[in-house]
């Protein structure tokens, strides 16, 4: 049995004994748990205070990221193959539908929970000093969450996604000054915001690849980086907000 104990200790560095020191140690030496301080305010962790909204948003992000990775194995960002590969995921890939459902529903929950978390933070005035800038980061995280959902919408290449994205990107065409159809426009239809977004004048292959890149690389990367900053700043601001 010694070898098992040695293996356990080498990974978790703690035993199973319980004492105040062990409790602190367990949090401090654990990579995941050290997001938290070893001891936290009793009022700050009340369920009726936070409703776990921020933590659950992170959880839904992790679920979408992992399931999204598995979907990437079978998905081709090619207008001729995209829809067929979606059908494959739904009908041929073992547990493909399940994986896609998890990805979709976790994304929906994330889009619900991030604004709710924002509401909670506002109602408890947790954006006040010294947490002002963390609120700003949070607003950006909200924006990124929406953008991630929006870019993912095009990938199945079905009627719903095509026309929803047509409507969404045509708004970019109507941007004042920078859109070809907007007020005071200075750019032509092959120079404006809409063109950069689509990589052409209509939704096509370049659009699909651009959205694929944004959805799978650029936006999740930005989101993960900003999230790390968000959590770090919570710690630096003295942990979770609570009555002064």
């Amino acid at each position: 049995m010694n070898i098992i104990v040695q293996m356990w200790r080498s990974i978790f560095r703690t035993g199973v004994a319980d004492s105040p020191v062990h409790r602190v140690f367990r949090v401090v030496v654990n990579f995941l748990l050290h997001l938290h301080p070893a001891r936290v305010s009793k009022d700050g962790i009340k369920l009726r205070y936070t409703f776990c909204l921020g933590g659950l948003s992170l959880f839904f992000f992790i679920v979408t990221a992992v399931t999204g990775g598995f979907l990437m194995i079978y998905y081709y960002p090619d207008v001729d193959k995209a829809y067929a590969s979606m059908k494959d995921i739904d009908e041929i890939v073992p547990f493909g539908t399940f994986m896609r459902n998890l990805h979709r529903w976790a994304a929906h929950l994330m889009v619900i929970f991030v604004p709710l978390h924002m509401l909670r933070v506002f109602l408890t005035a947790a954006y006040k000093p010294p947490r002002e800038f963390n609120w700003v980061i949070g607003v950006n995280l909200l924006l990124l969450t929406f953008l991630l959902s929006f870019t993912g919408y095009l990938l199945p290449w079905d009627q719903l996604s095509y026309w929803a994205v047509t409507v969404g990107t045509t708004m970019a065409e109507n941007t004042p000054i920078l859109g070809a159809q907007g007020p005071f426009s200075v750019l032509g239809p092959e120079e404006d915001m809409h063109f950069i977004l689509l990589g052409g004048t209509t939704i096509g292959q370049p659009t699909l690849v651009r959205f694929y890149f944004a959805h799978c690389v650029a936006l999740p990367g930005a989101l993960a980086g900003l999230m790390a900053l968000h959590f770090w700043r919570i710690r630096k601001a003295g942990g979770i907000s609570r009555p002064l």
């Binding site: 092959e190 990589g199 096509g204």
Partner: peptide, 9 residues
């Protein structure tokens, strides 16, 4: 770079 030289449309 975001503006392609050729558009295949």
């Amino acid at each position: 770079l975001l503006y392609p030289r050729v558009i295949y449309e």
